[in-house]
Amino acid sequence: MLLSWGMMPYILLISYKKRLFDPVDARKLHQHIVPRLGGVAFAPIQCCILVIALVCIYKLNIGELDLQVASWIILPSMALMVCGLVILFMIGIGDDLIGVSYKWKFVAQIMVGCLLPLSGVWINDLYGLGFIIGIPAWIGMPLTVFVVVLIINAINLIDGLDGLCSGVVSIGLLVLGGLFASYGAWLHAIFAFITIGVIIPFFYFNVFGTSRRRRRIFMGDTGSMTLGFSIAFLVVSFAMNNHFIKPFADGAIVVAFSTLIIPIMDVARVMFVRWRTGRPIFKPDRNHLHHKLLRAGLSRHSALIFILVITLVFCLFNIVTVRYISNNIVVLMDLIFWIAFHWLFNRLEKRQMIVKLQLFINL
């Protein structure tokens, strides 16, 4: 956290001197020039501190942690995860500075997605979800790559409101880190808490910084893609039925993906609406959840707090209910709540538009 806090002013200084700003257009919420290189601080600090933590744990025996597993089992997945962060870091910087075609970004995301199955981390059990238990490697490995790419893009697409992407990811990391620590999977817990520490200073500059004082910054694709891959690695690791990482738990896959239920379901809804209305699926618009909340009359900070609270509620609700209810019923309840939530806000949005129209007519 201290390293990230120290890097942010230097990133701001370089961004203003070289005029590396996020473009202002009709789809963006900001109306002033704002640097977009805040995510440059994430991956280098994550990798450096993780390596230091590994050295301290395995060589110096600091803390005398009971890792419960041999190092050769966990270290390959950690090493390839770091490689994936480096790849996305380079692609993200190129995109934030000069622009990179979405095709090349998609290829890079598939490459880093393949690193998880190569390291032995892949979704091998659905725990009865859809009445499916164990799944073979030829299905689970491609499914894992698809899930990783989906998570990276879902995290990237919700980065449209100050503090939203970093806030949602922080809540997910806090939940996963606590769960990993409770199971004794200390390496995964340490990585989750390292990432939270990196995000906290950025969240402050992003939400509470001001453009006039040159203290406001965006994370850009560099930050959103590396954060997406970081939490994807932890989600797949938690969802995997592998006693080397953690003990078996019936609701592991539901609990793991509940940390990302807001961005994933929001992307699915937006894609469905675009397909139903005949618009290009990958063309940006203003139909994401935070756009709907703003149109319904909420302020930016109120919309941010509302989404973060809903994210935390989903996580806590699923963690508790999977102990007593079937995974399929829990997922069904999540879907019902999500649909009812959007139905309610669609009505509020229409009422808000009617009020504005009446005010305009009166004027």
Rank of each mutant, 00 (worst) to 15 (best):
A181C: 00
N206R: 11
S258T: 05
L75V: 12
L116M: 09
K103H: 04
E349Q: 10
F229W: 05
H288D: 04
L179V: 09
L3M: 09
N346A: 06
G251C: 14
A53L: 14
T259N: 15
G120Q: 05
L118M: 11
G251W: 10
A256F: 10
W72F: 11
F180L: 02
R215L: 10
M265Q: 05
R213G: 02
S258K: 08
L335V: 12
G113S: 15
V145G: 04
I45K: 06
I329P: 02
M7N: 03
I354Q: 10
D96W: 05
K18L: 13
G178H: 14
V313D: 04
S119W: 07
P280L: 09
W343P: 03
F203C: 04
G177F: 02
I73T: 12
I11F: 06
C315W: 03
Q46K: 05
R276V: 07
I310H: 06
L60G: 03
A268N: 05
W275G: 00
A185P: 02
F314C: 09
V145S: 01
V313W: 09
M265V: 06
G140L: 15
H342T: 00
L37V: 08
L13K: 15
M7K: 04
A137N: 06
I253V: 03
L85V: 14
I110L: 13
D285F: 02
V82D: 10
L179D: 10
D125L: 06
V254S: 07
C56Y: 10
C165I: 00
V175G: 00
L289Y: 00
G177P: 01
F314L: 08
A256H: 11
L294M: 14
I245T: 13
N346T: 10
K103V: 09
F208A: 12
I14Y: 06
W122G: 00
Y324I: 15
I200P: 03
Y183K: 09
S230V: 13
F238Y: 15
Q352P: 04
S71Q: 13
I155G: 01
V168D: 03
M225R: 04
L260N: 09
I57Q: 13
L13A: 15
H301K: 14
I354Y: 02
V267Y: 01
T144P: 00
V331Y: 03
K356A: 11
P23V: 15
D22E: 13
T222N: 08
G63L: 15
V34Y: 07
F203R: 04
G209P: 00
V82E: 13
I110D: 12
F89C: 14
V112T: 13
I133Q: 14
Q358E: 13
L65P: 06
Q358G: 08
E64H: 15
F233H: 09
N346R: 08
P44F: 01
S326I: 03
G130E: 05
T210G: 03
L344V: 02
I319H: 12
W343D: 07
I45A: 03
L363S: 10
I336R: 01
L289W: 00
L335P: 01
I199G: 01
H342V: 00
A185F: 08
